[in-house]
Design a protein around this nucleic acid. Structure first.
Lengths: 342, 342
DNA sequence: TTTCAACACGAAAACGGTTTCGCAAATGCT
DNA sequence: AGCATTTGCGAAACCGTTTTCGTGTTGAAA
């Protein structure tokens, strides 16, 4: 139960001043070899490690970056975190994770907490509620306090900062076009409410593809799911309404893999053969898509890549390696072909 | 680009001392109402927030708990983190995540980093490599510096600290017994190498069940997978050797859901009907088990619960709410029945 | 013998707060 | 009026470190 040893203890014990100790440990030219040796030996013996809080206070740098995400038990977000963690570590930073649980209040609290000198910069993906009520004042506060932050995946144009997203619109366009080219005539869309930006963008891509190929947009086969992502039962019941009808669609594009997987289950229950009677493409290339049966064709969302780039952008800002205007980086989305499409 | 306002700025501006400001903001009885009002108004106006580093340095408390986990893109561990985050938040703590990537060196680095006054306590799940080489000196260091820590899930008896695990042995026993009771005669085990404690314990449970029901332990249908968890291909090829044989087993108990899901896929490829020709039970009740087809019966690992309890234990230690001897808490494991068993 | 640079180190300020203690002025009490 | 007690505030120490700016000693050059 030894108490942690400080520089003062060493100074007192060795009859020198704290400044001498500090300098000796940093191999300063000001200190004689003999004194250095003595001090270093003593410090080593007692496993001296400078108190990191003191260092941070002094240097005004925490070497920590904060991350605010809507959920953590989520394959995509955990991949993003993994990417963030990798580059943060490489560049000497640690990562502090906060979860908003899709709640505006929690997001606000987290950001205020992190902004109070706990971190050097923040990475944020907006909560659904924030996107719904469109209140972004907490970000102004960050800007005023000149705390660098970058938004990823769920971003918002109104907020003036660095952003990184994947090509949601383009990915959806590619997926829908592919379905059309393979002969689908009645392509359903399972999406989120429009206030979720990524949902809206993917819907746009879907619509653009329809238009390009001269198909009509049919609202009756477009379903916006407003349930919480972990209430599988409720989502299941919603989607059922789309598939358990007289003339079900012959293809489905779903804006995430959960919706796609549930649609797949329901299709099988309805006796439809996937992909022959019904093709399905999801979004977010995760573990569900890989292990469902048939496995799901998806638009890959490259979570780790996004996390890495976001962290790079943020750290570059923090270290002033970039001082130009804010950038928005778009990661292109490609299709992972599996068994749920022909 | 306003600079953050400090207590000194307020003091100077209002012609009082910093101590007066500090006390006024804390509603101290020492300060007159009028002065308090004036100071608070000023502070509010400039959005004064005390610098958290200064507070931490003074109080010698960071209100942060560190978490060292082997992987983050992992359903079980992300659930654990989620549980940790919930109770940490409730009790006013923040969470700092470090990933060891199953590497001893990285684990060591992370722990040393966290031990340097960055956090008030640490939650750890051992990396595979650490369990393999059995070097636990970094934990002695924590003890010497009296930094509270608790081990969860992947623990080690040699390390003297609080621990929390699920009933791996019991869960495996229940699962295996269930398979036997339903008539299985040739139950294969897909497990990890023995140095992974949870694998070893689950194997013990499996063996105890065999013994109880008078079945022989048959090493030829026990497979220890030594591949990295994200090399699905390699694991797939391993497991294939177990199933693509003349007389395949009639049941499989797998120590995690990845092995179970891959076994399921291979069984279907081999033309076996699950559960009629082959029953499968996995471990770790995750998203793969839920969405595979047929869905997988598993032993539920209750990640969130484990995270919550671990955080409670740690914070109680930190706040000295418990001062007794170290405890090991065991969370009981129950079976989630789904379609891969009869 | 004086002068000056180099050497080796210490004092003190700084980071941004909290907290103990002391002290003057105002008030209460007799 | 004289004494004790509040009241209201400031000085200073403190948390643990870094860093600037002296300063005393030594040795060598003039």
């Amino acid at each position: 139960m030894k108490q942690k040893i400080t520089i003062k203890d060493i100074a007192k014990e060795l009859g020198v001043s704290t400044s001498t100790v500090s300098k000796a440990l940093k191999d300063s030219y000001e200190i004689s070899e003999s004194t250095k040796l003595k001090i270093k030996a003593f410090a080593d013996f007692y496993h001296f490690k400078p108190n990191s809080l003191a260092l941070k206070l002094r240097s005004q740098k925490t070497m920590v970056i904060g991350v605010v995400i809507p959920e953590i038990v989520h394959h995509f977000f955990s991949r993003v975190i993994s990417g963030i963690e990798q580059v943060a570590n490489k560049r000497g930073y640690n990562v502090m994770i906060c979860v908003s649980n899709e709640s505006y209040d929690k997001e606000l609290l987290n950001i205020e907490m992190l902004a109070n000198g706990s971190v050097d910069g923040i990475l944020i993906s907006l909560s659904k509620e924030t996107q719904k009520i469109k209140d972004f004042n907490h970000f102004n506060e960050l800007t005023e306090n000149s705390i660098p932050f970058v938004l990823f995946d769920r971003v918002e144009n109104e907020i003036n900062c660095d952003k990184i997203i994947i090509d949601d619109e383009g990915g959806a366009y590619k997926a829908t076009s592919y379905l059309i080219e393979k002969g689908a005539k009645k392509i359903a869309l399972i999406t989120t409410p429009d206030y979720v930006t990524v949902g809206e963008l993917r819907k746009k891509g879907y619509m653009r593809a329809l238009q390009k190929f001269g198909l009509d947009y049919n609202p009756s086969i477009v379903m916006a799911i407003d349930q919480n992502d972990d209430d599988h039962e409720a989502i299941y019941n919603q989607i059922k309404k789309l598939i358990f009808v007289k003339n079900p669609p012959d293809a489905i594009f779903a804006v995430n893999e959960l919706y796609a997987a549930l649609a797949l289950r329901i299709a099988k229950e309805r006796g439809l053969n996937v992909p022959n009677d019904l093709e399905i493409i999801g979004f977010t290339d995760g573990i569900i898509s890989e292990f469902s049966s048939p496995s799901l064709t998806t638009v890959a969302q490259h979570g780790a890549t996004m996390g890495k780039h976001a962290a790079e952008m943020l750290i570059n800002r923090i270290e002033k390696k970039i001082s130009e205007a804010f950038q928005t980086e778009i990661i292109s989305a490609n299709i992972m072909f599996r068994e749920s499409t022909k």
